[in-house]
């Protein structure tokens, strides 16, 4: 089941998006997320949809694969949409018992749905086209100024990249422990939520013990290889902006400008919903 979730995975392909600088992609994702929340009518979505569709096309990641990431949030999505639909006061369109659907409710439910979907699509597109290492490198560089206010930027980035390295190892280990416990009669599948949660204890305890042991070993191995924090460290793959990154920044700013213009003038356009 865990393997079905595609959010945060990397999809290897040879596209312009894959080659762009991770800092640009992080900034771009931020701009994209802001842009979805800038306007209140559906006209803005025309621009956003065109933009999103064209970068998905450029990324060479199959749309089906990206859409699978939505599975993980489907529950949240339905919840928000239902609550927005039923609990927003306004002009009543339909009333069944105490439940009312209002025009404003329909409007905000649709908006929330689209916003959340685009949010997931946009941000997962970033992780699909960026290796975890590039991502942490990019984050480290973007957050670098925060070091002034004593944020341990290098350490956070190192922790993230180590976590990413050990996720598959710990998953495999979970599987192994689970099978070992099942072979000795442990039951992970039947019973109610509480019983199942209790059943996880014999799984989690050995997993934690082994994770701590691994952490200890790794810390020793890193020290043995002269690791002593970020000071005086050089990079094997330093981040350098290239021509195409500059171009991409221009495209991004142009997109942001379009969205802002739409959000200013949208009130003068005929109302759709």
């Amino acid at each position: 089941m865990i393997r079905d979730i595609t959010i945060g995975q990397y999809y290897p392909a040879d596209s312009i998006l894959h080659r762009l600088d991770p800092r640009l992609k992080l900034n771009g994702t931020l701009i994209f997320i802001i842009s979805i929340f800038l306007f209140n009518t559906f006209y803005g979505y025309i621009a956003v949809t065109i933009f999103l569709a064209s970068i998905i096309k450029m990324s060479k990641v199959p749309f089906k694969f990206i859409a699978r990431g939505l599975k993980a949030i489907i529950v949240i999505l339905l919840f928000t949409m239902t609550f927005n639909l039923l609990l927003t006061p306004g002009d009543v369109l339909l009333q069944v018992g105490f439940l009312k659907i209002t025009r404003q409710g329909l409007h905000s439910a649709l908006f929330m749905g689209i916003r959340l979907t685009y949010l997931i699509l946009g941000s997962s597109l970033m992780t699909f086209t960026t290796t975890p290492n590039q991502l942490t490198d990019g984050l480290e560089r973007l957050l670098w100024p925060l070091r002034r206010i004593k944020v341990p930027v290098h350490e956070i980035a190192m922790m993230m990249s180590i976590a990413l390295r050990f996720i598959p190892i710990l998953l495999e280990e979970t599987d192994k422990i689970m099978k070992a416990q099942m072979a000795r009669g442990a039951d992970f599948e039947s019973g109610g939520i509480i019983k199942r949660a209790k059943g996880l204890v014999p799984l989690l305890v050995p997993l934690f013990v082994s994770a701590f042991r691994r952490a200890n070993d790794l810390a020793m191995a890193m020290e043995a290889r002269c690791y002593r924090g970020g000071e005086g460290r050089t990079k094997m793959k330093p981040l350098r902006y290239e021509g195409r990154d500059g171009l991409a920044y221009i495209v991004l700013l142009a997109y942001l400008a379009v969205v802002i213009v739409i959000s200013i003038f949208e009130d003068r356009l005929p109302v759709i919903l």
Partner: peptide, 11 residues
Amino acid sequence: FQNPDNQIVAT
């Protein structure tokens, strides 16, 4: 070290 998994840092 002994355990190959626990001494490789990068992905």
